[in-house]
Write a protein that binds this DNA or RNA. Structure first.
Lengths: 364, 364
DNA sequence: CGGCGGTATGAATCCGTAA
DNA sequence: GTTACGGATTCATACCGCC
């Protein structure tokens, strides 16, 4: 089977009924850009938990969350992570969220299978449930692991977009976001919460903006009430959900149907210079923006002359704009575009201005 | 508090030369109240890394952090965790700190050996090193795992002390503290950092106030430059350090010997006029800006003493800085921040000056 | 003495493409 | 596969020297 054929055959934007391991094993290999997984937590709660006023806490005690032992949980973890890795594209990545009950086992198995951890990201809850018994710290965070399929995976990371989300400061590995409450929290027919561990859309928004591009395929093997699908749809990504509980699928279907995709312009995010087209310095000479023999100036006033082939010649060294700059600074590397200036109407102007002119012509 | 025979034989308040596994195996079983461990992280760094200004990052490339494979690291982890568990008292507990490189393997092995995880605690660094290449999130936190020796261990948890340290709010599982820099950062004869990964005393302060009582025995198998020992001594706990590097032992000995000499220069302030997040008074204590036992002065010259949990004790009353101030004034309320002063170089300085210093670090 | 600007540095798995 | 090289990339804080 060819990759294109199978990729076209992906059940996009649907929720598949079944066990996630079996379903993933039935999907074509190397076909998914990102996996977001919120696996069962193996909470091992001993009996019921009560608040000081004796009201019962609605703990995570569903049948699917009971595992006899670490062994059973590890086998389960191995199996679904292996199935997930097979369907990931070579440059694909995975996010897994968990708590101290399960995240260490998940993280170790990720490493064992050859996934390459990129960050652990802490979701710091601004409004966590207190520890009612006063015997431990308020459990105020959960941990997400972000990992590439391989060490060599060229994973997607929208650095500039995340930086913009954070008011111009590089995004950190700890995210402060409130838990899912209020009208965002889905209810069943009885008015009870539809799912015990519904994640906030703000969390998925940050994950998907940061780690995917519009049109990417995102698979969620533990779809639940479909937060991943809802946010993927909003953001113009395709999703594949897998969920074996009919009640959750039903809620998710209804939820996602109501979601509207953001406008195309709203989906545009800041891009880094790295993603812009490369302009050889020689083009500036070819186009006559700089003439052979013209002088360029370093920040410290040193002079180099432009040669016809787009190299520079300084006092005792010649080479590219980067090489000569690095040599003058005694530095391992140098960005010649921002290092050198030329004289225009008597004022010194960075040569990067000329590159921007060419780039703006290219995108017209 | 009487000590058992085996505890009496312990080499208290000394730094033992040797491999931590062998040394621990030579100690009597069930004799230690708490273990704090900062094991090698197995960073697996490849080439050099440069900042955008071309300066080179001083990497952690020490011999002691080199492991050939996950298998080798896991064997090491198994061995020291096993030795640690044997010497823990039945109600003892362990803290282990790590990063995503190693913490998942440590956590899984803790669970495998029967330790019972109580919380994972995230140290959110207020001033982490950025991600210089813009390829990942700022690595802004480290993870600590707190676990009892057994599921049944009646571990020590000073809930009220921690709550007091946090100005009456239950302490959360995420702690914001700055990394160890400035005068607290120990230097060698050449003026270089004595240890590449020295932990801040504020971190150990919170761990030891929360998880031990005065007179408890705290063992640190990877003692390094002895932060655990220094804070233990400050807080009236006994410590046992194990360290195989002579250079680290030497620095640690010297450091701990003069622990009571409080470095007043840490009080130098730089007032910021930015946003004003809530700062618990306890942080001033944790961070060494005010010492437990230090005197605070009311406007009328009355004296109250600072306690390790961030409360004050006056002649006949104890409580928060606000409560004690209100009591002295016979007033319904009192702003302790502007009410109390401490002595710096013989002059009375409002404690609010210290709060401003912390705020300038928090608003990032 | 204070403010200001320049410099140093911290547990880091830190590039992408063309030849 | 490997090599070569263009060129993109940083935040909080401490300290020092200079007005």
């Amino acid at each position: 089977m060819t990759k294109t054929k199978s990729a076209a055959a992906l059940p996009l934007n649907t929720i598949i009924d079944g066990d996630c391991i079996e379903v993933m094993n039935g999907l074509p290999e190397a076909s998914v850009d990102l996996i977001f997984a919120d696996p069962p937590y193996n909470l091992q709660l001993k009996g019921d938990l009560h608040r000081p006023d004796n009201s019962r806490v609605d703990a995570v005690d569903d049948e699917w969350d009971q595992f006899a032992s670490f062994k059973v949980y590890d086998d389960f973890t191995k199996a679904w992570l292996k199935a997930a890795r097979r369907i990931l594209k070579p440059d694909g990545a995975i996010w897994v969220i968990g708590s101290y009950h399960n995240i260490f086992r998940v993280g170790a198995e990720l490493q064992n299978q050859g996934y390459w951890i990129l960050n652990d990201v802490v979701w710091r809850k601004s409004n966590p449930m207190p520890n009612f018994r006063g015997k431990r710290f308020t459990n105020a965070h959960e941990t997400m692991i972000w990992a590439g399929r391989d060490e060599s995976s060229k994973y997607t990371f929208n650095y500039e977009a995340l930086k913009a989300l954070n008011e111009g400061i590089q995004m950190r590995s700890d995210w402060v976001l409130p838990i899912c409450t209020g009208h965002e929290r889905l209810k069943d027919e009885n008015g009870d919460k539809a799912h015990p561990t519904q994640k906030p859309e703000s969390l998925l928004h940050r994950v998907l903006v940061g780690a995917t591009n519009p049109g990417d395929v995102i698979l969620d093997p533990f779809f639940g009430t479909g937060t991943t699908g809802a946010v993927a749809k909003m953001l113009g990504r395709d999703f594949i959900g897998i969920e074996r509980e009919a009640a959750y699928r039903k809620v998710a279907e209804k939820r996602i149907a109501k979601v509207r995709k953001f406008d195309r312009e709203a989906l545009q995010v800041s891009v880094s210079k790295r993603a812009e087209p490369r302009v050889p310095f020689g083009q500036l000479v070819e186009r006559g923006m700089l003439r052979p023999g013209e002088a360029l100036y370093s920040p410290r006033g040193q002079v180099a002359k432009v040669r016809a082939d787009g190299t520079l010649i300084g006092n005792d060294v010649k080479g590219s704009i980067h090489q000569v700059g690095a040599h003058l600074e005694g530095a391992p590397s140098c960005n010649g575009w921002t290092y050198w200036t030329f004289k225009q109407d008597g004022k010194k102007v960075p040569i990067d201005v000329l590159r921007q002119q060419i780039r703006s012509e290219m995108t017209n």
